[in-house]
């Protein structure tokens, strides 16, 4: 270590009070402490090394692995009961899965029923202009009439109320042979098909006329 002259000069420049303290306290260790300290330290180190050597110094590989395995010991009969325990857990899990699968199916079914109910409620309660995508006035009339029929549950009564001209117009627009139907309705021949039948087959009347010619 360097000469302490510089250190004394430095101290005198900072504080003469401290520079003038003549005695420097040195804490003393108990008698004989330094004689025994090296051996105490070496003993500690040997103890530290021995605790490691005791475990791994064996030359027998099997003994080493046994020692390593003995570090963590499983409870008695743990391994004999392990396969059954695992199988129990697996079957529990399968049961749980089925339970959840059934529950899932039930949930979907309930959701479907609720959606159908909501759809029906909307169908019967919303204004029909929203229900019909075809914006023709005839469709609107028919839908309104259908609704009335449904409510009264009497189709004949409701059909009587329909204006004849409206009905004819509707049939014409939908491609039915109105004239043939009218002719058939005026003919008093029980051998002929009903006029209603003509409404569904506009060629029947022509065939019939050809036949009687």
């Amino acid at each position: 270590m360097k000469s302490n002259a510089d250190i004394k000069v430095e101290l005198s420049q900072i504080s003469t009070l401290i520079e003038n303290i003549e005695v420097k306290i040195n804490y003393s260790a108990p008698t004989g402490y330094f004689n025994t300290l090296p051996d105490i330290i070496k003993q500690k180190i040997k103890h530290q090394n021995n605790s490691i050597d005791n475990i791994f110094d064996s030359t027998d590989y099997l003994n080493k692995s046994e020692l390593k395995n003995k570090t963590f010991v499983a409870p008695e009969n743990y391994f004999s009961s392990l396969p059954n325990n695992i199988l129990d857990k697996v079957s529990d899990r399968i049961k749980t899965k089925h339970y959840f699968g059934g529950r899932l199916l039930f949930s979907y079914s309930m959701a479907a029923v609720i959606i159908i109910l909501i759809g029906l409620i909307l169908f019967y309660n919303l204004p029909h202009k929203f229900v019909l995508t075809n914006n023709k006035s005839n469709n609107l009339v028919i839908t309104n009439e259908t609704k009335k029929i449904n409510l009264n549950e009497n189709i004949d009564e409701e059909l009587d109320k329909i204006n004849e001209l409206d009905a004819l117009e509707y049939l014409k627009e939908n491609g039915h042979d109105i004239n043939a139907a009218l002719v058939a309705s005026l003919t008093e021949n029980s051998g002929m098909p009903d006029e209603v039948d003509y409404l569904y087959d506009n060629e029947t009347l022509n065939n019939y006329i050809d036949k009687i010619k």
Partner: peptide, 23 residues
């Protein structure tokens, strides 16, 4: 190692003791 301990034990003791006070 024994020589290193013997050579430095008192110096290091003094240094540590001034910090910790207790022996």
């Amino acid at each position: 190692f024994t020589s290193i301990i013997k050579k430095y034990q008192e110096k290091l003791y003094g240094l540590i003791r001034r910090m910790l006070i207790s022996h």
